[in-house]
Design a protein around this nucleic acid. Structure first.
Length: 406
RNA sequence: GGGUAGGUGCCCGAGUGGUUAAAGGGAACGGACUGUAAAUCCGUCGCCGUAGGCUACGAUGGUUCGAAUCCAUCCCUGCCCA
């Protein structure tokens, strides 16, 4: 057997670092491998960064391997200092449990948790029971502080201060690997490239404790061509939960990615065949919009399902192309008292503007339209005449649309 | 515990008694240009507002006509010593 999922992952651009490329490649080609990716429950929803990891897991599962989703009920209480300049806010146990449950629901959209096909585990189950002295003797003896301090992930914390609490994160994550190896025969840990230090910690610990060959692999972080992290919006992260990031906004985010990032996103965030990805990625100038539409639709479909993706696409076409249905664009429900009220106040109440000042400014800058006519007066009122069939369309800036419905 | 340097708007960071809603940069937002792209240029970027007012520089008190700026106490962080 020579074909390996490893090659697929590599071709699609997922792989950043690997402990032993040839051995991992061979292992993935010749046996069913149990592997894991960890997710710390720092928020009540997964975001696009996690989605990349889920895509990798999905590819692996399709190739016959068994994924373990580890939610960090234990590590989440400590907080991973990797890539952070400040200590994370401490979460309460109740928060963590709530978040863990949400994660599980969301993961089920991408991973098949059918019989023995995949597992969800919570490292709180074993980490919380650990005895300090035992752990120190058992695990602590295998780590030298010198090596740990040299780890990339602590670099920028050496200046800002790194607490002992967070310093132990690597130990805990390494212990997870060992524990999963013992419980499930785990052979491989995967994670974002920022997890490299933590992952090799686990690989080494497990090797030393058991003598078994185990491996680590990191996947590319989702970054824009200018190096910035992808998936950040004005409102923060791009969430997979539609309550936190509306599907329409989610779709629009991908519809609007930079030309330079289109091919990469198609490869990493969709299951389209690579020939198709290359073809779409090579489109030039205005034609690349075609690729962006497909990207937006596909990613939205994977995350929110076909129906939601259709709605988002339809809403986008209604707004930008004149076709499609406007029904699914963000909607503001008008109250009875709104007729004759100031448009500005209605939009602030509807969340379109964060403050009246912001709205007023936007109007002064010619950034607001009502039914395709520029609004020039900040104090203009919304009247029945503005409505057609009980609806009006408001445009904020160049491409944010809201439907007012009575 | 001792010494020392700090805590400023979304982030970084200037500012050491009035001219400071607070320089500069980044992010973000609006406009022009475009392809729902990028780059560029112009503008905006605490809240309410016609004027004008209100709130804000870790927290709480105080000095002063007037404080982000001075004093006191407290909280937090870095560094050095123990």
């Amino acid at each position: 057997m020579t074909s390996s999922i490893f090659d697929v992952l590599k071709e699609r651009g997922y792989i950043a670092q690997c402990t032993n490329e040839e051995e991992v490649r061979g292992m993935l080609a010749n046996e069913k491998v149990t592997f894991y990716v960890g997710f710390d429950p720092t928020a009540d929803s997964l975001h696009v960064g996690h989605f990349l990891g889920l895509m990798v897991m999905a590819h692996m599962q399709r190739a016959g391997h068994r994924p373990i989703c580890l939610v960090g009920g234990g590590t989440g209480t400590v907080g991973d200092p990797s890539g952070r300049t400040d200590m994370r806010k401490m979460l309460t146990d109740a928060d963590i449990e709530h978040n863990c449950n949400r994660f599980k629901e969301q993961m089920a959209r991408f991973i098949d948790f059918g019989e023995d096909k995949a597992l969800v585990v919570n490292n709180g189950d074993w980490l919380r029971k650990l005895n300090y002295i035992e752990l120190l003797r058992d695990v602590g003896a295998h780590f030298t502080v010198n090596r740990m301090l040299a780890a990339e992930c602590y670099k920028n914390r050496m200046e800002k201060g790194l607490t002992f609490l967070e310093f132990n994160y690597m130990i805990m994550q390494s212990y997870d690997f060992l524990e999963l190896h013992r419980r499930y025969g785990l052979k491989l840990e995967m994670g974002g490239d920022d997890q490299w230090s933590n992952i090799i910690g686990g690989v080494e610990l497990t090797r030393r404790k058991t003598g078994d060959a185990v491996y680590g692999l990191t996947f590319t972080l989702l970054t824009k061509s200018d190096g910035q992290k992808m998936g950040k919006t004005a409102g923060g992260a791009l969430w997979l939960d539609k309550e936190k990031t509306p599907v329409y906004d989610f779709y629009q985010y991908w519809r609007n990615v930079d030309d330079a990032d289109v091919e990469k996103c198609l490869a990493l965030l969709t299951f389209l065949p690579m020939e198709e990805v290359h073809r779409l990625g090579s489109l030039q100038d205005a034609a690349i919009n075609e690729a962006k539409k497909i990207l937006a639709y596909e990613v939205t479909r994977l995350v929110h399902g076909q129906e939601e993706a259709d709605k988002a696409q339809s809403a986008a076409e209604a707004v930008f192309g004149g076709a499609g249905s406007s029904e699914n664009m963000p909607t503001i429900q008008l109250a009875d008292g709104d007729m004759g009220s100031r448009l500005l106040d209605i939009l602030v109440a509807g969340g379109v503007f964060a403050s009246k000042g912001e709205g007023r400014r936007l109007i002064q800058q010619n950034g607001l339209s009502l039914n395709d006519a520029k609004v020039t007066d900040p104090d203009c009122l919304l009247t029945e005449e503005n409505l057609t069939d009980g609806e009006a369309l408001v445009k904020k800036g160049k491409k944010k649309f809201y439907r007012l419905v009575k």
